Amino acid sequence: MNLEQNEWWNTFLADDNAVILDVRTDDEFNSGKIPGAINMDIYKGQGFIYMLEELDKTKNYYVYCAAGGRSAQACGIMNQLGFETAYNLLGGMSQWDGPIE
């Protein structure tokens, strides 16, 4: 599901079962991330799939990348793997004006 920034962040803040997933490269991740995010680089292909399969499918995932394309793709993959809830951040980090660490 695609969400605009305010809805994505506010839904995350109210969600006791939430995980933020950053699907950018390590270099992008290390240059600044949304607080608490875990990094899984979608460009790792099958390795990305293996990492996803280690995650708890009962959690709600808030997924982002640089501009929203890779994260939309990641949400699609997650849905195919049986994840019930994956929210894509429209605009990604390029339009993010929330907290960064």
Rank of each mutant, 00 (worst) to 15 (best):
M1E: 08
N2P: 00
N2Y: 01
L3G: 07
N6P: 00
E7A: 14
W8F: 15
W9Q: 13
T11S: 12
T11R: 12
A14C: 00
N17R: 10
N17A: 06
N17Y: 01
A18V: 08
L21H: 01
D22R: 13
D22H: 15
D22A: 14
V23I: 14
V23H: 13
D26L: 15
D27S: 07
D27T: 08
E28R: 10
N30I: 08
S31I: 11
S31Y: 08
G32M: 05
G32Y: 12
K33L: 06
K33Y: 02
I34E: 03
P35G: 04
A37P: 03
A37F: 07
A37I: 07
M40P: 00
D41E: 03
K44D: 08
Q46L: 05
F48Q: 07
F48C: 09
F48H: 11
F48Y: 14
I49Q: 09
I49R: 12
L52C: 05
L52Y: 09
L52A: 13
E53A: 11
L55Q: 15
L55K: 12
K57M: 09
T58R: 06
N60M: 01
N60Q: 05
Y61R: 06
Y61T: 06
Y62P: 00
V63S: 00
Y64K: 10
Y64H: 14
A66F: 12
A67G: 15
G69M: 08
A72N: 07
A72V: 01
Q73D: 02
C75Q: 02
G76L: 12
G76W: 09
I77S: 01
M78T: 13
M78R: 11
N79L: 11
Q80V: 14
L81Q: 11
L81C: 06
G82C: 10
G82L: 01
F83V: 10
T85K: 15
Y87W: 02
N88R: 06
N88E: 08
L89S: 11
G91Y: 04
M93G: 04
Q95H: 10
Q95N: 14
W96G: 00
D97G: 02
E101R: 01
